[in-house]
Write a protein that binds this DNA or RNA. Structure first.
Length: 280
DNA sequence: AGTTAAACCTGGTTGC
DNA sequence: TGCAACCAGGTTTAAC
């Protein structure tokens, strides 16, 4: 589920309330993608720092004891996988069958619900140390980073022969777009998803980057997309899916030209495309 | 080296 | 109604 907008919406819902919160206890449910990597009891006594996002990951710093000294300092790298969501609960009910991680603090319980369990909660001593760095180091640029210029974006695309949709999904050129926003950004840019990345001209690359930024920004305004599972930290659903131009609209009319939106499959994933609005 | 399948899970929807 | 097949927001890992 969660692509960059959903993860960022989640971050915005938990960062301020949890800043400086004291961890009272923590518990794990069923196994997630990877083991926590540290006895869960050792999280108690920690103080939560500023939650930051990198790609679709959240980094939740924890420090123990005096700020400068503690050898126990580190944090949690969180990922919501396909079906995860985080809730910050004032009073947490008994965990349900899909509640796989609780961080109980004096400001409420941060609870991860994830039916499919593709999500992750992993301890690391820092974002830049293993195991977090193993996951984060391979990520591409943040989409809103001004350092990601159209020229750099175009140069990166030129190094790739794969379909542009697959390159967006891979996240090693630019992070943040998953299946929904990759489809939507390509539609907004008028580029067919099957176009080889290295065949995209400089002006079209610039257009794609702008479209990606616009799409992600609009989704942020709408609280992300809720297809099934996603809710923000307060339990609210996103609304972007209601104004998606192509995603999930196979067989329906294109909102721009009235033609029929098609579903094709690329890299085992559904791609939605308007063949008349999107050209190779 | 770069691209593409397989794998990890659960549950909802579709079709026979 | 039952059951099999297919589909779903992701991404690491293994295999061409």
């Amino acid at each position: 589920m969660p692509e960059l907008p959903e993860v960022e919406v989640t971050r915005r819902g938990i960062a301020a309330p949890l800043l400086g919160a004291r961890v009272l206890a923590a518990r794990l449910g069923k196994p997630l993608r990877w083991p926590l990597g540290r006895p869960v009891e050792l999280l108690a006594g920690g103080t939560v720092g500023d939650v930051v996002r990198r790609g679709k990951y959240l980094w939740l710093p924890l420090w123990h004891g005096p700020r400068a000294a503690a050898a126990d300092d580190g944090g949690l790298l969180l990922h919501l996988g396909m079906s995860g969501s985080l809730a910050l609960l004032r009073e947490a009910p008994e965990p349900g069958p899909h509640d796989h991680f609780d961080l109980v603090t004096d400001r409420g319980t941060l609870r991860l619900n994830d039916p499919r369990r593709f999500g992750a909660v992993v301890w690391s001593t820092s974002m830049h140390a293993m195991p977090a760095s193993t996951l984060l180091d391979r990520l591409g640029a943040e989409p809103f980073d001004p350092a990601l210029t159209p020229a750099l974006f175009h140069a990166a695309l030129r190094r790739r022969r794969a379909a542009v949709k697959a390159v967006l999904l891979a996240g090693d050129v630019v992070v943040g777009a998953g299946n929904i926003y990759a489809c939507e950004a390509l539609f907004a840019a008028g580029i067919h998803p099957a176009t080889r990345a290295d065949r995209i001209s400089r002006p079209r690359a610039a257009r794609l980057l702008a479209a990606l930024r616009g799409t992600l920004a609009r989704a942020l305004e709408l609280g992300g997309s809720t297809l099934r599972d996603f809710t923000d930290a307060h339990g609210a659903s996103g609304e972007f899916q209601l104004e998606a131009a192509v995603y999930g609209r196979a067989g329906l009319g294109c909102r721009r030209c009235g033609g029929t939106v098609r579903r094709i499959v690329q890299a085992q994933r559904s791609t939605y495309v308007c063949p008349s609005c999107q050209r190779r």
